[in-house]
Design a protein around this nucleic acid. Structure first.
Lengths: 210, 210, 210, 210
DNA sequence: CATGAATGAGTGTTCATTCAT
DNA sequence: AATGAATGAACACTCATTCAT
């Protein structure tokens, strides 16, 4: 009888949270597959037995994290407003990217597990597909508003997502000498110009069409 | 160190090649970490012992494959010609992308291992960094020729690489209903326009500015 | 490093002791190198996994045993009293030898590993060198008290140790038709006469100089 | 059909000797059990296949070496002359010890395999038992001539052999700062005095009773 | 609710020996 | 006479999961 999803009291919820946070941390450091349940319980300052009191297995922990992550990512999609070709659009884009990177800082492992197809579990996969479909759809819509030929929408949105996700990965996991700010700025300009029809001379700096 | 780099006769070379090919195949199917030496030797129709006659361990096989892959990727970088904003540029770009995807079809595992930081081995990593630095440099150079602001080169090249690599991954590993041709065409148009200053109405079809 | 030196509860300590005892037994039967972890856990009536819960590997088990053995051997050295050339000296010597043989019955494997240089591990070696240096020093001191030319002390002590160790090995491991008593008696007389200046006619039997 | 003991022509004999010498060398370095056939054939500059052309297995090589060693050791026993308590005796003893150490330098592995009971092969064992019984008998006889109580002969001879063998092991295998000469001198004095009734003041240096 | 202990299937690697040329 | 290639049984060690307290 695998323990699970009972009503939890305060202490139980706290322990579960400790384990989830530890999972996020350990997965981020070592990668999901290389992470050991042992590491997780050590970080969470609890025991093996306790782990299986709250999660039926390692994958179940990832699934739990994936649910949280999906809801955060879908939130981003829902809140993505119009992006015009002017400096206002760039700012909106910048804001979106900053929030995405911040989500990635917390849930990078989950997103990578989705993008790099690290787990075979159907449920986890579905969560990722749905969340990223929403983001891609939102971005595609905004691009069409900005004048993109609809036949190109899908490919463009996919390409854009790849850029954003990999850049977030790079900034959060690889040791580059670049800080979030700088990288988000660069990316915003690039994306604005490449996907939302901003002209080369336009930028937050000038703020006006020329 | 019983294994490696001795003079091999014809038969030995053949077996080694069988193992390398089997490695490529199994790694591609299951991912590097989830692949079992056992699977590889079964595919190569040889024995466990024989594997260790040619490779000192699983990682060593990956390293060997990485060397081949790096040389192929660096070849691509070396042969990347100028890409103008006209239809000739699009064709050149299309050709480059097609070759990249074809390399990815063979060496996808290795490239993913590099990009997804799957192995801790320094040597393997170095090979990847070097090869992709060359490609990024080559692309960056071509973008600058096409008028890109040099301060944006590095970020642009990195973003472009991400797009190309992830797209190749998608087309070769995920089950999309898209064939290589269509996807390379789409990507070429997109990249040409987004990174090499082609205008929206321009395309191979018309080939002329309007 | 999942194994080792945590706080153990009663049950854990018991299991660890069972494993250590099993190690002693199996090592003694087959020799350290020829012993299989498999044999040890079978004797200890536990599982493979449990072994690695308490020892990080086979060598670590030997190291643990070596620590115990060293402390017992050093105890012998510390308690070695003066050995005069009379029958009292012979009795003291006999007592020492009997205790050494008894230690050998338990820790023979470890002592052999030291003496026959069976393991390359530095720590294990150091333990042996230290313990036997102490014994040799103690014996040397007693021999000098009994009139030995100090320039001969080191060689004499070494030779004596060799005799004692090999004899203990013979009596405990080889199938000789001799029991401990008889052999210790013989050895005591021999050593007393050869290294502590007892005259040929002297012995426990007479107990007096003639 | 295990290859063996056919008539060998010049080339064959040469190859077999190369293998035997390589075995002696590799066994001495790593110990019998830790030696790999691979190491032996590499040192002998030949192949695995060739090894099994001359020896039916690793143990067979040791057996072959043991035969040679036994004959050399038995030679020593046969040539051991009387050892009186005077300086002539010491010289004779010194000569014997020097020859034993020299044999040990070549055949140490074999002698250790006998003494440390490293192999279970009956034949190899028998060879060792016979050879060392001869030496022990010879030494025992000489000791009796020198006045030893016959009831003590066997134990004394065994103890003496242990001393000689272990000392030879120490000098040939362990890194002591002592050269053969010095050690043989020390040992000769010691043994002469302890087992052949020489008085403490007697030695090669003075050569006369005082 | 919590935990230390136990488990055993699974995996990488070694190496003596045999085989085909 | 020689050799490179092949084999597979054997072994050490790992780790997700279950159990007893």
């Amino acid at each position: 009888m695998p323990a699970q999803r009972r009503e939890l009291r305060a202490q139980g919820r706290k322990t579960m949270r400790r384990l989830a946070d530890a999972g996020l941390q350990v997965f981020a450091q070592r990668g999901y597959h290389e992470s050991r349940v042992d590491d997780i319980v050590r970080v969470a300052k609890t025991s093996h037995g306790t782990f299986y009191l709250y999660f039926s297995n390692k994958e179940d922990l990832l699934r739990t994290l994936a649910i949280d992550c999906a809801s955060e990512v879908e939130g981003l999609a829902a809140e993505l407003g119009p992006i015009d070709s002017g400096s206002g659009g760039e700012l909106a884009l910048r804001d979106f990217l900053a929030r995405f990177v911040s989500t990635y800082r917390r849930y990078g492992v989950v997103i990578r597990a989705w993008m790099e197809d690290q787990v075979s579990d159907r449920d986890i996969d579905r969560l990722g597909v749905r969340a990223f479909t929403k983001i891609a759809t939102a971005l595609g819509g905004r691009m069409e508003e900005a004048g993109l030929d609809p036949s190109q929408t899908q490919a463009s949105a996919a390409a854009l997502m790849a850029m954003i996700e990999r850049s977030s990965y790079a900034i959060t996991s690889r040791d580059l000498g670049v800080d979030d700010e700088a990288m988000v700025d660069s990316l915003a300009v690039l994306v604005h110009r490449g996907f939302f029809g901003a002209s080369a001379t336009q930028s937050r700096a000038t703020g006006s069409r020329q």
